[in-house]
């Protein structure tokens, strides 16, 4: 196969971004005339292999090993180095998830092959694929190319490709492959994952969300946002800097390390629009952004934008909404 798409899964469920990786792989395969395969690492993963085989790929590979039952950076690095060497694909594709970020750079070093990470897409130029990724937290875009001989490792940003674009197939064949792992290779012990404080804030189901970012300036200003939220009947969201400053609890965080939301209205106040935040909210139906910086990346994806001082606007907006509702 030419394109090897690697699945990520936990508790028998395939990660959403792995399906997006399949969509990316299928798209590249079509544009470049290449064959595809899905690889599943784990232990007792035949059900997942069956699920994968229903998609339009040429093959499904299964690396079944007891030491791959639970993720470890060492185990995955060693196993993937072996598999990529044996199968020699042109492209290896994964979602840019926290797990992938934890081991794929090591595989890049071990193989001395490029890792083009957090890609937002690619375009075709003279029959070649040119990859795009963001720099300066989304303020600038870059075109990048891998050097040397393949394989090339690629990870795509959340929502760079759509899960529902995955094309179904007529039943790909499943092939078991061997990996050579022993206990001594895995130097770290991974304990059972646990959930942090949730605090009863479920933004994923919210219809209206008012989110504040660094632009709120200081903790005392949080109250005026709460009042706006209450008046509008909206839930309160926050970007990471606001949570890090402990102005709002972690449970309010939207973004890659917080919740992923898609409300009817997302009112972004003083949010610059860093990638880590955007991946958690770009599925919102209507995005309204208010920011004093006209170059803030949030305006790239806003439906409505206001360049202005939120500290001045928020109290007046609360009043105006009160009047409109009266």
């Amino acid at each position: 196969m030419d394109i090897l798409i690697i699945f990520e899964h936990s508790n028998g469920k395939i990660h959403r971004m792995s399906w997006e990786a399949v969509a990316a792989g299928q798209s590249l395969a079509k544009d470049l005339g290449l064959t595809t395969a899905i690889l599943i690492l784990g232990s007792n993963v035949s059900e997942l292999a069956e699920e994968a085989s229903k998609k339009n790929v040429d093959e499904v590979l299964v690396a079944d090993h007891p030491l791959l039952e639970r993720y470890s950076s060492d185990g995955y690095s060693v196993a993937l180095k072996q598999i990529i060497t044996d199968e020699s694909p042109t492209y290896v594709i994964m979602g840019h998830t926290y797990m992938v970020r934890d081991f794929l750079p090591r595989v890049s070093v071990a193989l001395k092959k490029p890792l083009l990470c957090d890609l937002t897409g690619y375009y075709m130029e003279n029959g070649n694929s040119v990859f795009t990724r963001q720099l300066f937290q989304g303020k600038i875009t870059s075109d990048i190319l891998p050097n040397g001989e393949p394989p090339y490792l690629l990870t795509f940003q959340s929502a760079a490709f759509q899960e529902d674009a995955v094309v179904d197939g007529s039943g790909a064949s499943v092939r078991n492959i061997d990996v050579n792992l022993d206990k001594s290779m895995i130097r770290s012990q991974y304990e059972e994952p646990f959930q942090g404080e949730v605090g009863g804030v479920d933004l994923t189901a919210a219809e209206l969300i008012v989110t504040i970012g660094r632009g709120i300036g200081k903790e005392e200003n949080i109250n005026m946002v709460k009042e706006l939220g209450d008046t509008l009947g909206a839930q309160l969201g926050a970007s990471r800097p606001v949570v890090d400053a402990e102005w709002l609890p972690t449970a309010h965080q939207v973004g890659s390390s917080g919740q992923t939301v898609s409300p009817k209205l997302y009112l972004a106040l003083g949010i610059s629009g860093a990638i880590q935040h955007v991946v958690g909210m770009k599925g919102s139906k209507n995005i309204v952004a208010i920011n004093k910086d006209p170059d803030a990346p949030i305006f790239e994806l806003a439906d409505y934008g206001i360049i202005g001082d939120i500290i001045e606007i928020i109290p007046k907006l609360t009043e105006a909404i009160k009047n409109a509702k009266a």
Partner: peptide
């Protein structure tokens, strides 16, 4: 040896039509 090269950088292309609301507060 460089494993990857930055070909060029540019200001992001707009993918959405943003309606800017203008005026005083």
């Amino acid at each position: 040896e460089l494993l990857q090269s930055l070909e060029k950088i540019y200001v992001p292309k707009k993918t959405k039509l943003t309606e800017m609301i203008e005026g005083d507060t």
